[in-house]
Design a protein around this nucleic acid. Sequence first.
DNA 1: AATGAATGAGACTTCATTCAT
DNA 2: CATGAATGAAGTCTCATTCAT
Lengths: 225, 225, 225, 225
Amino acid sequence: MPDMRWLGHTWSVTKKTTKKKVAPRLGRPPATDSAGTRQRILDIARLAFAARGYDASTNRSVGADAGITAGAIYHYFGSKLDLYIAVHDDVQERVYSQFSDAISTPPTFRTKIEAVLEAAHEMNKEDPSLAQFLGALRVDMRRNPELKAALQHYAVARLEFFDRIVDHGVTTGEIDPSQREEVSALVLVLLIGLTDAVSGNPSTHRHAVDAIKALLEGKLIRDVS
Amino acid sequence: MPDMRWLGHTWSVTKKTTKKKVAPRLGRPPATDSAGTRQRILDIARLAFAARGYDASTNRSVGADAGITAGAIYHYFGSKLDLYIAVHDDVQERVYSQFSDAISTPPTFRTKIEAVLEAAHEMNKEDPSLAQFLGALRVDMRRNPELKAALQHYAVARLEFFDRIVDHGVTTGEIDPSQREEVSALVLVLLIGLTDAVSGNPSTHRHAVDAIKALLEGKLIRDVS
Amino acid sequence: MPDMRWLGHTWSVTKKTTKKKVAPRLGRPPATDSAGTRQRILDIARLAFAARGYDASTNRSVGADAGITAGAIYHYFGSKLDLYIAVHDDVQERVYSQFSDAISTPPTFRTKIEAVLEAAHEMNKEDPSLAQFLGALRVDMRRNPELKAALQHYAVARLEFFDRIVDHGVTTGEIDPSQREEVSALVLVLLIGLTDAVSGNPSTHRHAVDAIKALLEGKLIRDVS
Amino acid sequence: MPDMRWLGHTWSVTKKTTKKKVAPRLGRPPATDSAGTRQRILDIARLAFAARGYDASTNRSVGADAGITAGAIYHYFGSKLDLYIAVHDDVQERVYSQFSDAISTPPTFRTKIEAVLEAAHEMNKEDPSLAQFLGALRVDMRRNPELKAALQHYAVARLEFFDRIVDHGVTTGEIDPSQREEVSALVLVLLIGLTDAVSGNPSTHRHAVDAIKALLEGKLIRDVS
DNA sequence: AATGAATGAGACTTCATTCAT
DNA sequence: CATGAATGAAGTCTCATTCAT
């Protein structure tokens, strides 16, 4: 079972304590489906934050796309920042539970990385906004101190997730211990590059994933020296 | 004794240590260097745009860091957008003249790419804000239609620059023609990944460059299957 | 005892007697009448635009006179230009429905013009800001290209309204066809002169209307040559 | 000789005392012709103030059109307001010396008014900016308290100029004493109407002048009742 | 006599947020 | 649960004006 300690930890940075999640009642739902509205806001907000980032995504536009007014968002989330954090937690959960599953079976560094790449590609095909949100998140955390303060913890956890895969490669002998840091940096570059460079285009994303896999097997570039 | 009140507002890059609010004089400050001020604005704006992006970088803060008021920026640049474009042109020129020089001598795809990586690393050591600006630019172009309209042309040119290197690799036989698109996507992922993932940290950047070079030679990951 | 702090900011048309700076509450004020506020903005804006013109009328002052902040105007109108257009449409409707009614019954050119003059006088007595707005409009359209673009259509329609009356005078034989242009120019001069010269003063306006009517009957100036 | 007492009185509202007008030196003028520059500023400013009014005419644009920078205007005029007043005094002198000349010979009210109309028409053909400036002046005085304070005196004098012609008409018996105020209001309406309605178009201006003259002779509109 | 660098005030506008209903 | 009226802070930009050169 994958290590998921770093999931499920809610950081409420705002003053207002998030209202207790009311368990969905049995029987006929009321005219307006509260949980449904909340989820709709979350989905719309993810798309908005992924496409335009934190600052340029306005409560008004998110609300409008979700069929409500800007003020109504505050029934579900204490602030714009809280909404961002909720979106983040949702994305984090969905992406890293997939990644965790993906790496659980393959025995080697290379096969684990390949499994992550394939999982990333599948997710990208299904809903590119997940990867795009994570790409935007990195930028927005640099740009907005409040975001950084609230989500730094997870960013570190994401780095550690990949470091553990690299550590495994050292264990299996695939990676020379003296090159652990190089490989670690490379993995970062590849994963972040995939997200930032090609997550908008499934077919290019496919090409990139294939290229990386070939490269890891030493099969992409021929020597002509 | 000469009147030196005007010293009170020069180069006050401070933010909170408002030293006693020395009332700045009206009128042209003595001994000002117009070209110097313009360059200072450009440099500070590059740092700001790189760190916080277009929207979050305010004329006020750029002006304050340059020792002038927000309005004075308009003495040198017609609008915030014009300032951004001027920074862009400056960065573009500096980075791509280096890249062009770098690829001119090496004979093969791999050596050309390695030369680009080394040039990128040197620039990153000297002034990381160049790469960071280009990374931020990609994000800001997605987020801001005006930026996109103004700078799309250059973005395409940058892609073509790398495509030409890949084409050369096909010519030399290093790259199988059927894999040109894969390699093209890979180069993008690597370059953008380098910029977005590690340009803030010279030593990690070094590790990443070394890892990529080793990988291109098929020497990084051993096969243990 | 009810909380009445919010009374502090209602209808504060004052300018200098800032009575103790009662901090206004955030949020929706109690017992507000949205349509009433909108109409209040419209009325106050008409007075402001009539008195000081488009540029010199600030959102801040209009808002203050309407008991709200400058930004709140945007709750009702999309921009300052939109507000101006809304005021214009309101004035246009009120004035020209009166004028249209006035000319419908009288059979001749002279009686139609007299009816227009009387209608203008009645309106001027009741609310001089209507005519003054139209006078200011002509100036502001010359000075502001955006205004011109938005309202040119109506300006032409207003000219045509009077041209049709003159045409009628040609039909009845009151006006020699060779003098249609002269009379047309005269009507313009009279109507615009009335607005610009005397609309601020009801009694002088009365004098002017009477003089024009006498003149049209050839009874004002005796020949002593 | 016409009454010109109200001419030639300079009202300096600003703090800075207008520099003594240096008498043009004999002999070769210096490289830059100071008096020439001053007059150029005055002419350009008249056009600008006439076309766009006080607020929308910027020192920068006036300077640019006059071939100098905005700051240089302050060598000749203490402030924008001073410049406006100087333009006003110039226009006032030119227009009312013509008007004064025009009314000196004709013996009756009607012929004096006709002479004024013809003089206005001649001036309008030669340089419409004179009348347009006076039209804009009336608007700008309403809109800008400082302008009003500085120039109210002249506005009153202009009214009195026409009142004296009306008084003359009463003397000659052309105007019934009981109708003096009506005629006075009419003259205002006609003169201001001419300026505001048709001063931009010489041919329409001609039509209007002819129509007014015919009307004063009772010859424009036939009775068909 | 003129330039041009710079200030400071003020304009329009957008936005997160609050709160009566 | 949701609306919509309103605030206040902040941002871009313009402009008259000042003043060293």
